[in-house]
Design a protein around this nucleic acid. Structure first.
Lengths: 224, 224
DNA sequence: AGAAATATAATTGTATACAAATATACAATT
DNA sequence: AATTGTATATTTGTATACAATTATATTTCT
């Protein structure tokens, strides 16, 4: 029987409060619940999430390093806004790193990881056929994450994961039509085939195409 | 007259302790004073720097986001080591972003920034002639920082600055001979000329060459 | 009224106390 | 000797109290 636990709703997932707070605030900022330029008062966050200032401050430090807030000593934390151009830029930056990830991954992937990748791709084929968009969203992310992992570079992996989190929250309309699913599958197929053939530059090119396709889709969305 | 101040040697530069601690620990890790895999006990850091746990924990959060330590909940913080390959990789990753920075900078640079860049380059010419290596080290950094700023992307700027900090600490022997100074000047000249001509791809190519030159230099150092 | 000076409140920075989890030491058992 | 269980110590997580700074309100003076 539990005699005492720290209060608050955040203490449910096993993680320390400060970690949960970081994820929660990150979400709040990316989803626009906390507007750009607005000040994050520690006290207000404490009250909102019913926790003390210690974990709040730690979460703020993380957000600062993540580039989501600006911390001015003795003044406070302010939400940093992303302009449309910032988002455009992010797609370009991501592209460069996804291409590099694929290059390294092909050179460094283990047999086990290769099997995982193959399996994941087969799942993609299956759920594309099934037109299961929800499943596809997750498998999609998983496919890329596998490549990050196989790249064997912790930094790269971390940064690309961040881009995924960021950009996921900035997608505008989520046009996921069947035709889109098919296109993405073929783009991934090109990448996967290059992996099997150990064709480094072919894979990089295929990834570039895949990324350009995402950029083009964003442009379309912006026009709507 | 000061009646009371928080104790400790870190409280001299005006920044909060937590910030100073972050920089200090970052340096300690990058310079190898804290070995890879070793555990950072909060208490030990408190004693070493004569501060309380609060700022220490905040600094640790920042180091975690910076990728220098791994924080395992309820277990502690462990120094992450960089392998030689990690460093090699970092040069490649930096190259990709330096090239992108230069592209955007040319498209977005303001007249004022352009003047600053010109001035900086002229200083470089002067101190190269003077063979003043110390000065050159700083101006070198300044030249690149100006480009980051002109790129107009906060994220990119922050990441490239991090690479500079990281890689600076991993240079092995610091071979700065006169011949090297001259080479670097010419590489920078190519970049600067491309800026004046608003030659985006030319500048990217020049930057690529500059980065490849740095990579080659590292290879040389490794062989010694 | 407007500006400067001062007092007050609000907010951030730091230290410390306590809660909870983990690590360690040691005995009991097999 | 190895393993399990338990008590103890250490360490991390969180809350709170106080110091220092900044923001706001008030007063004072011209």
């Amino acid at each position: 029987m539990v005699l005492y636990k720290y209060p608050g709703a955040l203490k449910e997932n096993g993680l320390p409060i400060s970690n949960s707070l970081f994820f929660q605030l990150q979400k709040d900022i990316l989803q626009g619940k906390l507007r750009a330029g607005s000040k994050l008062t520690e006290q207000r966050i404490c009250e909102q999430y019913e926790v003390s200032r210690t974990p709040v401050r730690e979460a703020l430090r993380q957000l600062e390093m993540d580039g989501l807030i600006e911390n001015i000593p003795n003044r406070g934390a302010f939400v940093i806004g992303f302009t449309e151009r910032d988002i455009d830029d992010m797609y370009e930056l991501r592209k460069a790193y996804e291409m590099q990830a694929v290059r390294w991954a092909i050179e460094r992937i283990t047999d086990e990881e290769m099997e995982e990748l193959e399996e994941t791709f087969e799942f993609m084929e299956f759920y594309t056929m099934k037109k299961d968009i929800e499943k596809m969203l997750n498998i999609n992310i998983g496919f890329h994450q596998l490549i990050y992992k196989a790249s064997g570079n912790r930094m790269l992996r971390h940064m690309l994961s961040s881009y995924q989190i960021y950009l996921k929250n900035y997608r505008l309309h989520r046009i996921y039509e069947d035709s889109y699913l098919d296109t993405v599958l073929e783009e991934h197929r090109m990448i996967f085939e290059a992996f099997k053939a150990r064709d480094t530059e072919g894979a990089a090119k295929a990834m570039e195409k895949h990324m350009n396709s995402a950029i083009a889709r964003r442009m379309q969305e912006k026009e709507l």
